[in-house]
Design a protein around this nucleic acid. Structure first.
Length: 372
RNA sequence: GGACAGGUGGGUGAGUGGUUAAAGCCAACAGACUGUAAAUCUGUCACUCCUAGCGGGUUACGAAGGUUCGAAUCCUUCCCUGUCCA
């Protein structure tokens, strides 16, 4: 039975701690979810994610898995869980982000999104209903309704038109989900849009709340806008969402921003930064960033982060990691991704503990002091 | 000893009379990355001056001379390298 259990609420901020009960295990929130678009978190094995990182939930992507290898193939091979041998929870994005990232390869219509495959140019129509069907085939624990992730900046008029269409898609997708896929074991989240206009965000949230959904997402952020705006839009939205339902801000953020989202009432986040930046040699540490290719690390015997307990930091020097990076060795990606994700998960665990102990305000204050 | 081929910036390698301080790639050095078209992408990469500009000057294509208004490019000599033949 899918259920969100609220455990603690910060009396001073909007922060909450809870548990997301899914068919594939409990997920303690606030949670950061590693991104595994193509049925793999790039650079890692499920073994790493479970044994080393203890990640409770990861993402998959409807658009990418539909194109390759195909959702029917995955369905036959045990769904995404069986296919990629991932025993824990999976959240799948609907393809709405590809409306943004594959701008130029798609056309948005009232019916849905017509994508031209980035692999071979074949046309594929994605509708609110079809994306639910694909996600059901994938066996997703938390499905996302198809939305239009709008680029920044957008005019108020364009944002309104887009947001209203996203609401219509959410209604259609949700109706389809209720009719075919709502078995109590899985969940489906609609997505609040409205670009950087608080009034549109508010209207969108109000419309979507009527769906009485399993949880709510805030999308359309981290599309090029100033960081402060992303937080502002989150802050304008979360108070309108039902307290007893989980809130998921899609595609954020930098390590420093994670507590800020939580303070605004966010329970779930995901981002490619820890994994992608890891592969590009950008490591997150408790002391800030370490760009491992820099010559200053040439003979550095220290671990990436002296306070980190990850496998990478426990066994390897910056000098060694720099060598692997410069030599384009595959193992670098694994070690770096392992570290960066561990950093994100550690931050979230610290945040959760602070909330449970009633110390989140202090945590937030000291966090803000440390970065200013 | 002889016959060919060749010597270009840290490496490799284009360029065979003038928009060439010299392509591309690699290395080096920086930067970017936010629901992943990303093990990707971008910038810098001889020295120097200032009024900081599609600005000036100085070096630079093995060495030294020469031809020419002008040479990495043509000529002469020398040095060096590779392959083959004795």
């Amino acid at each position: 039975m899918f259920r969100f259990e609220l455990q603690a609420v910060c009396p001073d901020t909007g922060a909450r701690a809870g548990i997301l009960h899914t068919a594939h295990g409990d997920v303690e929130t606030p949670v950061f979810m590693p991104v595994g678009t193509q049925a793999t978190v790039k650079g890692l094995l499920p073994r790493d994610l479970v044994d080393d990182l203890d990640a409770k939930i990861i993402l998959g992507n409807t658009y990418h898995l539909f194109l390759r290898p195909g959702h029917e193939t995955i369905r036959k091979l045990g769904g995404l869980h069986g296919f990629m041998n991932w025993p824990r929870a999976i959240l799948t994005d609907s393809g709405g982000f590809q409306v943004f990232s594959l701008d130029g390869l798609r056309k948005v219509t009232e019916e849905g999104v017509l994508f031209r495959s980035h692999l071979n140019g074949d046309p594929h129509m994605f509708t609110p209903e079809s994306t639910i069907d694909v996600q059901l085939a994938l066996g997703s624990d938390i499905m996302m309704v198809l939305d239009e992730c709008l680029a920044y900046p957008a005019s108020h008029e364009a944002a309104r038109v887009s947001m209203e269409r996203t609401v219509r898609w959410a209604r259609a997708g949700y109706a389809h989900y209720r009719a075919t896929g709502s078995d109590g074991m899985r969940a489906c989240f609609p997505i609040v849009q409205g670009s950087m206009y608080a009034d549109l965000r508010k209207r969108c949230a109000e419309e979507l709340v009527d769906l009485d959904a399993d949880g709510y997402a805030i999308g359309g952020l981290s599309v090029g806008e100033p960081r402060a705006l992303s937080l502002e839009m989150t802050e304008a939205t979360t108070p309108l969402l039902p307290k007893e339902k989980s809130r998921y801000v899609m595609g954020v953020g930098m390590p420093d921003e994670l507590p800020e989202y939580v303070a605004r009432g966010v329970d779930m986040m995901d981002c490619v930064l820890p994994s992608r930046n890891a592969r590009n040699g950008y490591l997150f540490t408790s002391e800030g960033r370490v760009v491992i290719k820099q010559s200053q690390y040439k003979d550095d015997p220290r671990p990436v982060d002296e306070r980190c307990k990850c496998y990478t930091c426990q066994h390897f020097s910056r000098a060694y990691l720099r060598h692997l990076f410069l030599a384009s060795e595959i193992s670098f990606s694994t070690l770096a991704t392992l570290h960066n994700l561990r950093r994100y998960l550690d931050i979230m665990q610290g945040i959760r503990q602070a909330i449970l102990l009633g110390e989140f305000q202090d945590y937030l204050n000291s966090h803000r002091r440390s970065i200013s």
